[in-house]
Design a protein around this nucleic acid. Structure first.
Lengths: 340, 340
DNA sequence: TAAACAGAAGTAAACGATTACATAAAATCA
DNA sequence: TGATTTTATGTAATCGTTTACTTCTGTTTA
C-alpha cells in the first residue's frame, strides 16, 4: 500500500503538501495537479488509522441497541444513512436488554474511540454514560431516558401513546382493561404505565390492579403474560400490549387459545410493522415515528460532534399516533364468555 | 487519558516493559506487579488506534448484509457473539440489496482496515471482493455465492430446500404450482429456481411457465407478485414463495384478497420467524439453519484471520428443513374456484 | 531600492503503541 | 572462577498521518 510519503516523492513535494491537498487546504493549482496525479497513479488511499491517531477523531459513531429486532434496526438504518451522508460511519451493537452487557458494549465503543455515542439505555442508572460524556464524547439517548443524567435525548411521548390506546378502549365501552407492559425501570415501560393509569383517572374510573402484568419486553414474556391474563377466572375483555415484541407474543397466545379478536377480545398493540398490518385481523396499534426518531438522533449527535452545544440538554418528544384497525370493536357484554 | 509512557514512568520501567505485560509476554513477577499497579492507579487503557497503526490489525471484522431484517440480523447476532468471545468486534453494514452500495460499504470497511470481511453478495460478480482478498484480507461469503471467485462460503442447500417444499405440494396432489422467487442473479434465487424445476423433472411433470414470477426479495414485490398470480384467469391452487420477505408480502396480499389458506390456496413459505409461526394459519415453510450459519461463518473467518488456510476454499452447505404446519392441505378440485 | 509582508511549501515533532536490537544481570557450565 | 548462555529490561525506530513552525519566493509599500 502506498503511503503519503510515496505520493510526496512521486509528486516531488513534501508530505505536508500532500496532506494539504488531501484536506482541501490551499495550495498552488499546479502543485495540486501534480499531487492529484501522483495519488491517482499510485492508487493511494489515506490510512484512516494513522489519521485518527493524530487527529483523535475516527469519523465513527456507535449505536447501542437493546436488540437487533425490526424496531431498532429500522431506526438504525435511518441513522446510518444520514451519518453516511456526512461521511461518518455507524457501528451498531446489541446490549441484549441487559445493563451489564450494555456497559460492556459502551466500553468497547469508547475504546474504539468513537466520536459520539447513541444509546438506548437498558437500566435506570447511567454512571457509565455520564463518565463518557464528561470525557468529552457526546452522548445521545434514544427511545429511553435515564433519571440521573443531563443528556440529550430523542424520545417518544409514551404517556400520550398509551393514553390514546386506552382511551380508545374506554370510548368503545371497555372498563376492565388488561395491560401487558415492559420493565418499569426503563422509561418507556414506566411512562406507558403512567399513560394507562391517567386515562382511568381522567375518566374517573378505577383500575383493576389484577389485570396489570409486567414482563421484560420479549416476545416470550408477552406470550406468557397474555396466557396468564386469559387464564384468569374472569379475564379482561380488552388488553393493551405496550411494546412491539410483547404484542407478537400476545397475538401468538391468543391465536393458540382460539380466542377470536375482536369478538372475544379487543386488542391494542404497539408499533406498526409488517406483522401488525398482516395480522388477522390487522391490529389497532400505537405507532411510533421511527423514521423521525432516527433522523433526530442522527442530526443531534452530528451537531454535538461538530461542537455545537446549543440547547443542551436537548429533549425531543416525538408524537406517536393511534392507528385504528380491526382488532378493536365496541364492547359487548358476552365478550370472552365462551373462553371462561 | 494516560498513555503507556505515564504508566512506564509511574512504574519506573520502560514503555517496552509495559507493552510486554500488556501483551502477556514474560516479565519478572515483581515488575509485572509494579506495572499492573501503575495501570490500575492511573486507570490506563491501551489506545487501540495506536496499536492498530503499529500492528496493522484492528481486531474488527465487517459484515455486509443486504438488509437489516430479521433473517440476517439473527445471523449477525450469532456472529457477533462468537467474535466477541474472541475479543473481536463486528461492524454490520447494509448494502440494501444493491451492488453499487455493496461495493461502497465494502470499500468503507476496507478503509477502516477490518481484519476480515463477511459478505452477503448482492450481485453475481465479485471483482471488488477478489481484489480485497488478494490484498490479504480474508473474505467469507455468507448465504450466497458468486461464480467468478475462489472463496470460502457458508451456504444453505437451496436446491434441496426448494425441492422439499415443492415435492411436499406435489405429494399433496398439486400439479399447477406457482413460484414467487427472488432475483436470479443471486445464487439463492437461482438455486431455489433449480430446485423447483427439478421436482417437476423428477416426477416427470411439466411446469407451467406462466405461474413463475421473479421479484427482488422485498416484501413489496412478494405482495405484488402474489396479487398478480391470484389475479390470473386461472390462478394456481398452490404457491411456493422462496424467500422470507416475499413470503410476508404474499401473505399480506392473500389476506387482503380474502383468500383462505389452505382452503383456497396452499402456501409454502421460507424461513421460520415469529411471523410464520404466528400467522393464521401457521405457515408450512422451508427453514434455514440461521444459528449454524452464523456459527460457521464466524468460526471460519476467525480461522482465516488467524492465518489458518486449511481447506481453502471451504464451502459449507447447510441443510434446510421443511416444517409442515397448517398452510398446506391436500388438493381438492374446487380449490380457488370462488376466487376466480 | 530596501523593508515589510504575504503566500506556498518544507522540516520535523507529535499521536501512542510495538518490537528489533542492544545491553545488563543472572544462571549455567567447565 | 571465568566464560558462556539465558533471561529481563531498556533504547529507539517505526507505523502513516497532521500541523506548528520555519524557510523561501515573490509582491507590495514607502
Amino acid at each position: 500500500m502506498p503511503t503519503i510519503k510515496d505520493v510526496a516523492a512521486r509528486a516531488g513535494v513534501s508530505t505536508a503538501t500532500v496532506s494539504r491537498v488531501l484536506n482541501g487546504e490551499k495550495v498552488k493549482e499546479a502543485t495540486e495537479k501534480k499531487v492529484l496525479a501522483a495519488i491517482k497513479a499510485l492508487g493511494y488511499r489515506p490510512n484512516h488509522i494513522a489519521r485518527s491517531l493524530k487527529t483523535q477523531k475516527t469519523q465513527t459513531i456507535g449505536f447501542v441497541v437493546p436488540d437487533f429486532g425490526p424496531f431498532f434496526m429500522q431506526v438504525a438504518e435511518v441513522v446510518e444513512d444520514i451519518l453516511n451522508s456526512y461521511s461518518y460511519s455507524l457501528i451498531v451493537c446489541n446490549s441484549n436488554e441487559n445493563p451489564a452487557r450494555e456497559k460492556e458494549r459502551v466500553r468497547m465503543l469508547v475504546e474504539k474511540k468513537v466520536d459520539g455515542l447513541l444509546v438506548v439505555p437498558t437500566g435506570d442508572t447511567a454512571s457509565h454514560l455520564r463518565e463518557i460524556q464528561q470525557q468529552g464524547t457526546p452522548v445521545v439517548l434514544v427511545d429511553r431516558m435515564v433519571k440521573d443524567m443531563q443528556v440529550d435525548c430523542v424520545l417518544v411521548d409514551n404517556v400520550n401513546g398509551a393514553y390514546q390506546a386506552v382511551e380508545h378502549l374506554i370510548t368503545l365501552g371497555y372498563r376492565r382493561i388488561g395491560l401487558i407492559n415492559g420493565r418499569l425501570e426503563v422509561t418507556t415501560g414506566e411512562e406507558r404505565y403512567r399513560g394507562f393509569l391517567r386515562v382511568f383517572e381522567d375518566y374517573n374510573l378505577s383500575v383493576e390492579e389484577g389485570l396489570i402484568r409486567t414482563g421484560d419486553f420479549s416476545t416470550e414474556s408477552g406470550y406468557i403474560l397474555m396466557k396468564e391474563l386469559m387464564g384468569l377466572p374472569d379475564p379482561p375483555p380488552a388488553v393493551f400490549v405496550a411494546n412491539y415484541y410483547m404484542t407478537i407474543g400476545a397475538m401468538l397466545a391468543v391465536n393458540e387459545m382460539g380466542i377470536k379478536v375482536p369478538r372475544d377480545l379487543a386488542l391494542v398493540g404497539f408499533d406498526d410493522m409488517e406483522l401488525t398490518r398482516l395480522a388477522n385481523p390487522p391490529l389497532t396499534a400505537v405507532v411510533q415515528p421511527m423514521q423521525e426518531m432516527g433522523e433526530k438522533a442522527a442530526e443531534l449527535i452530528y451537531k454535538r460532534i461538530g461542537g455545537d452545544n446549543t440547547g443542551f440538554p436537548q429533549m425531543y418528544r416525538l408524537k406517536p399516533e393511534l392507528v385504528i384497525r380491526d382488532s378493536t370493536s365496541p364492547f359487548r357484554k358476552t365478550k370472552n364468555l365462551e373462553v371462561i
